[in-house]
Design a protein around this nucleic acid. Structure first.
Lengths: 144, 144
DNA sequence: CCGAATCCGCGAGGATACTG
DNA sequence: CAGTATCCTCGCGGATTCGG
């Protein structure tokens, strides 16, 4: 990806040199980012990230999650959890009782995802005011 | 947001205490995350993040961007750039020449966004193999 | 070259009803 | 309780055309 902030040209990757490691500049293209895209799609997904954040507090049952995520439909919660489980971010544990009980919990991988996501969250919290002001100004300029 | 990895219960925020600072547990709800959601939506957007990454290398012209982002339509590039400009992440500079020329560049805010996004990118690069393996296994279990 | 405007297909996602 | 199945709509986004 990129070596922001303010790198004028190119990201850097590490390639094995002779005995040392050499840094090689290469342009940022969709080639480099392609494998990252599906991850970003998951993180950027409206519901996935909420589920992960809530599960970071500990395991939850299905309806417990549903109650705590305002506006999510049964269907979307199911699909979201399936996707997270498929990616190995969440475990699904079924207790064959009556009535049935299913616990969802973050895997280690899921927990590790919280780190960069929290970083993004902090950036968002720190800059939300600036952004909303920018939006307001932009919209004011547009309407005439 | 959350204090992963592996915080068993609750995130922490800092509240001003008497002379010291006290840590207060509070649940992660969509209340806490609401202001963050639109930011994540932007970051998670398929095109936005690619544009930001490419612009992190330096200013680009419209068609230059278009050529470097495989598969993006003119319309979506325009909309994406407008959104980024509106959020104050990108500047749009028009040179009234013939033919016209428009340069797009990251603002300081845009550059600062690269930092957490790069963090996420590194996580993705580091775990893409694990995730794809997990997906393959999950799909194998499903088909029967 | 840069963009706005229009049309249109399609798939994400909500609502509802039904099962184990 | 924890899903699955079906229907239906609504808006995202591609293709195309026109304007400055």
């Amino acid at each position: 990806m990129c070596d922001c902030p303010h790198s004028p040209q190119g990201g850097t990757i590490l390639l094995p040199g002779h005995t040392n490691v050499t840094k090689v500049k290469l342009p940022v293209t969709q080639e480099n980012c392609r494998p990252v895209a599906p991850i970003l799609a998951r993180v950027g997904d409206k519901w996935s990230i909420l589920v992960v954040m809530i599960l970071s507090q500990g395991p939850r049952r299905f309806n417990d999650l549903k109650r705590n995520i305002d506006g999510i439909s049964q269907r979307m919660l199911t699909l979201t959890l399936r996707g997270l489980e498929r990616d190995g971010l969440v475990t699904r544990t079924v207790f064959p009782t009556i009535p049935p009980r299913v616990d969802y919990a973050l895997t280690d991988l899921g927990h590790s995802l919280c780190v960069p996501v929290t970083g993004l969250g902090k950036w968002a919290m720190a800059n939300i005011d600036t952004i909303e002001r920018s939006r307001a100004e932009f919209d004011a300029r547009s309407e005439d």
